[in-house]
């Protein structure tokens, strides 16, 4: 009984992974085919980039603030408060910035895509598109995946900057550290080896958010629960996938660093 169940759920899992891979494959074969829906791409960029900015900014700011406040006592105990900018800078640029921004976007954009495409599927808007001669995969899926892929790194950069600013404010108030000193400390501790991998990672994060959201929405079950489920599982699967990508990215970056 138990083994049967695990085999079944394993099968479900593998089919899901296979389907997503197939979906990704379709993305890569279709993305270079004309026509390219540039206008829709820009519209999606605006929706995903600009409209997430406030959320990402506020979260980044709070993270920077809280992170600094929390680590301050410990560093103080070692008399190493002067290291705060380096520590905050490295952890935000390398890890916290990308992953927090990606998770926020998985929640906002991923579920948004899942729900939007899901309801379009359920209300036959996707079919309507198909019969009116527009390839819905190109129009809906490719534009969205590209938009998340390109917008996420930018959101990450802006989120990083705001988080660092939040951290600076704490240091400025509590430790009387000037803007110039804070940021020169941050940048002196950073290397290209910190910035480049995390930027590349952000592209993959964006791709994952778009891919899973679109997959879930595009293959949504008919019915209203289908839409909810699509939105919900888009977030869950994306978050999971984000951590997997993060893990792989760290491994790969480490490998490159060693070489």
């Amino acid at each position: 009984m138990g083994t049967q169940k695990t085999i079944n759920s394993l099968q479900v899992f593998l089919t899901e992974v296979g389907d997503i891979s197939y979906f990704a494959g379709r993305f890569f074969t279709d993305v270079f085919k004309r026509p390219f829906e540039f206008k829709e791409f820009l519209r999606q960029c605006y929706n995903m980039g600009n409209r997430s900015l406030l959320l990402v900014g506020v979260t980044g700011f709070i993270i920077g603030l809280v992170f600094t406040l929390q680590s301050r006592p410990t560093l103080q105990e070692f008399g190493a408060v002067a290291w705060m900018p380096s520590m905050v800078g490295i952890s935000i640029i390398r890890e916290i910035g990308p992953i927090i921004t990606a998770l926020i976007c998985a929640g906002r954009i991923g579920s948004g895509i899942g729900a939007e495409l899901g309801s379009m599927r359920v209300t036959e808007q996707i079919d309507a598109m198909e019969v009116s001669g527009t390839n819905p995969f190109k129009y809906l899926v490719i534009t969205r995946i590209l938009a998340t892929t390109f917008m996420l790194p930018i959101l990450v950069i802006i989120g990083d900057a705001i988080a660092l600013y939040g951290s600076y404010l704490v240091e400025n108030i509590k430790g009387d550290v000037s803007f110039q000193l804070y940021f020169s400390e941050v940048f002196s501790s950073l290397e290209f080896g910190d910035v480049i991998p995390s930027t590349i990672k952000s592209f993959f994060f964006g791709f994952a958010i778009g891919l899973v959201g679109c997959y879930k929405g595009y293959n949504c079950d008919k019915g209203t629960e289908g839409v909810g489920l699509a939105a919900n599982s888009a977030v869950v699967y994306t978050s999971l996938l984000l951590f997997v990508i993060d893990f792989v990215a760290v491994l790969v970056a480490d490998l490159f660093y060693e070489l």
């Binding site: 980039g49 930018i154 959101l155 950069i157 900057a161 940048f187 002196s188 950073l190 290209f192 910035v195």
Partner: peptide, 28 residues
Amino acid sequence: AQKIKLAIFVIAGLSLFILGVYLIGNQQ
């Protein structure tokens, strides 16, 4: 209007990135 806002957003992001890269590069 959306396009302009998007452009501002992208330019802001890219310039932050370039500034960061420049500052790090400067240190190195």
